[in-house]
């Protein structure tokens, strides 16, 4: 987005756009709070909250950070970063459920702790 060509009324058009995005962000924030009080089941609550957060984030990213009019190379950089970000979280957390079968590690730490507590109480 090269700055020389932007004339004053174009900038004013952008300003109106920014105010519109501002309103949208406030509305989305209100939604995410109200939805949080409605219990749609743990999984869906997380999904909805993250969906709204991603929507707000993309609004900020596209308009406020001018990503919409930015060069493709920056989009490439962000995609690469997002891939590693997702890889890090996915593999780190994914590894939690993956335990070697047929060994004491077979169960997740939470289950092992539960057994540990039972054995304590039974003595």
């Amino acid at each position: 987005m090269d700055q020389e060509t932007l004339s004053v009324e174009e900038v004013n058009r952008h300003v109106k756009l920014y105010l519109g995005v501002f309103a949208a962000l406030l509305v989305l924030t209100a939604i995410t709070v109200t939805v949080a009080f409605v219990d749609l089941g743990h999984g869906t609550n997380i999904g909805v909250a993250l969906l709204i957060a991603t929507a707000k984030a993309s609004l900020v990213g596209l308009f406020f950070m001018h990503l919409k009019w930015e060069r493709k190379s920056l989009h490439g950089l962000l995609l690469l970063t997002f891939f590693f970000f997702a890889g890090m979280i996915g593999l780190t957390v994914g590894g939690y459920w993956d335990t070697p079968n047929g060994t004491v590690h077979d169960r997740t730490p939470v289950e092992i702790q539960a057994i540990h507590h039972q054995s304590e109480r039974s003595e």
């Binding site: 924030t29 995410t32 709070v33 949080a36 609550n45 997380i46 909250a49 993250l50 709204i52 957060a53 707000k56 984030a57 900020v60």
Partner: peptide
């Protein structure tokens, strides 16, 4: 924007 729901709402 991500911190708010993750910490406060979930």
């Amino acid at each position: 924007i991500f911190l708010f729901p993750v910490l406060y709402l979930l």
